[in-house]
Simulated scan of single mutants.
Amino acid sequence: MASNAHKVGIFSRDGRDNYNWLYLLLLSGFFKSVVTEVHPIYIANNNFHQFMNNVTQCTFAILYHSRKRGRLNVTNVTDSLYDMELEHLSTILGKKRVIVVMDDVENSSPEEKKRILQDQYSIGQLACDLFLFSEQEKRSCNMYASDPIWSERPTSNLLHDEYNSVVKKRKEMKEIVAGHKDQHSRDDPRGSQPLIRSTSYLNSPTDIVEISEPRAPNVCKLSNKNFFLIIIASIVVLIICLIVALTVKPIH
């Protein structure tokens, strides 16, 4: 067992039945090298003190929310459910040891993820990453079943894309838990580009400033400009000398 393996807490106002697939996935052999224990932790509305105690028993946190509750209202929106909890998890464990999972979504595409991160910007500020899972993705790997056991191949020929998507997310989640994943390089869809990238936040945590590499100066233009400046300066000096010569009286 790796020395840096984590005690993972799944924090949610949903019952464990909704995320049992995630609980069993984290206990599977795939995560064995990075996860030692998994603790389902229910967040009660009137017992924040107990929540704080539970956080101290974990070294990594997953904040879980299901669309089955009606909305994807984790933070920064009307009637958001986890504003204080997300901030506390990030404060105690650190941003790199917190991820947010939104489950049973209709659209789990990168575009939808970007939209959510823009609207619910605290997720990008306080958590390492956001994962979206659809029902079809879970069906594709048999994690939607009553007894979820990961399938090493798509459960249907019609679900190849969904299976590839969830395989990728499983791999990324493991790398984050292990502390080996570079968030910014993963989310840059363009790959390597000749750009100087600043990751300073602007209006939202997903804004990235792109500054083109500076171009080499035009030597000819600079040389011509300097030449004319020298000519003008020489003329000015000559005029001054003539004025001085004409105004100074000779000494007898």
Rank of each mutant, 00 (worst) to 15 (best):
S198H: 02
S223F: 09
K138E: 07
N224R: 10
E152D: 08
K169I: 06
F133K: 15
V167I: 13
Q193C: 03
K168I: 06
E175A: 14
P189C: 11
L159G: 01
Y201R: 05
R186C: 08
S146L: 14
D188A: 04
T206R: 01
P205Y: 01
E213R: 00
S192P: 00
D188R: 12
N157G: 10
S200T: 14
Q183I: 11
S140D: 07
E135R: 15
K174G: 07
F228P: 00
P148R: 04
K169Y: 03
E172D: 06
P214R: 05
P154Q: 06
K169Q: 03
C141N: 14
Y201F: 12
I211D: 02
S165F: 03
D207L: 10
H180T: 10
I176Q: 02
S140E: 07
L222G: 00
K225F: 13
D187V: 14
G191T: 01
G179V: 11
E137G: 14
K138F: 15
H184I: 14
P217D: 00
N224P: 00
H160T: 02
I232M: 04
I149G: 07
L195Y: 14
K221E: 02
I211F: 03
S198G: 04
V166A: 02
E152P: 05
S198P: 00
H160D: 15
D161T: 01
E162F: 05
T155E: 13
S223L: 11
V209N: 10
C220Q: 11
M173A: 01
C220W: 11
S140I: 13
L202C: 09
Y144H: 14
K138W: 15
S204I: 01
S156Y: 01
S151L: 04
V219E: 06
S212Y: 04
S212M: 13
V167Y: 06
P148N: 03
K168C: 07
S198I: 12
R197K: 15
E172M: 05
S151W: 01
R190Q: 07
T199C: 04
E172L: 13
L158E: 10
G179W: 09
E213D: 13
P205S: 02
R153G: 04
R215C: 00
H180W: 15
